[in-house]
């Protein structure tokens, strides 16, 4: 009887832990790349796979000012990036090819291009509980060759165990976005 209870407790803990919403981050750097040489970057419009039409624009704006705030790199104004995209004739700015990246970097005088995909943004429900979530991928493409030199993906928010037990925390989507972007930026500079 005692053994069964222990097994049940362990099983329940494992299930509940698996259900808990938690931050997740994966990251890859090209070892042969000298990231210190990247002084100016162009942040491309982010692809938006969510239902909220403005999600890509919102995350991009926040990311741009946060990246600038680090003082590590200079981020080109969005209007300059748009001019470069138009002049380079990039059909899909959310996923440029290597040739397009090289061409764009030549026009706007950038050392690298950052692309992003917003996969989830907004409210998520789990039973009676709800919470805000963000999931995004980002890549950096080097301006000379157009090859990918850094990728990262982050996920923040969602419904955690605490939310299930004590009710939703009500953390605003903006705070979750900043948290996820902070993690991504920290990984970029590591």
């Amino acid at each position: 009887m005692m053994r069964k209870t222990r097994f049940l407790a362990v099983f329940l803990m494992a299930v509940l832990t698996a259900c808990a919403g938690a931050g997740h981050l994966s990251n890859w750097h090209d070892e042969s790349m000298d990231f210190g040489a990247v002084k100016t970057v162009a942040v491309m419009p982010f692809a938006n796979l969510t239902q909220l039409q403005q999600a890509g624009g919102r995350v991009r704006d926040t990311f741009m000012s946060m990246l600038m705030a680090t003082g590590g790199v200079y981020v080109l104004p969005p209007g300059e990036v748009a001019r470069g995209i138009a002049r380079a004739g990039i059909a899909d700015p959310t996923a440029p090819s290597s040739e397009e990246v090289v061409k764009l970097c030549g026009i706007v005088k950038a050392d690298a291009v950052i692309t992003g995909v917003v996969k989830e943004y907004g409210e998520v429900r789990a039973g009676a509980t709800f919470g805000n979530i963000i999931a995004l991928d980002m890549s950096m493409l080097e301006g000379q060759s157009g090859r990918v030199v850094w990728t990262a993906s982050a996920e923040e928010g969602g419904v955690s165990m605490k939310d299930r037990l004590l009710g939703p925390s009500g953390k605003p989507i903006n705070d979750i976005t900043v948290q996820a972007l902070n993690e991504i930026i920290n990984k970029l500079f590591k």
């Binding site: 419009p45 104004p77 969005p78 209007g79 300059e80 990036v81 748009a82 001019r83 138009a86």
Partner: peptide
Amino acid sequence: IMLDSVSLADA
């Protein structure tokens, strides 16, 4: 014509 904010050429 502003595409997405002001470009440096327009500026």
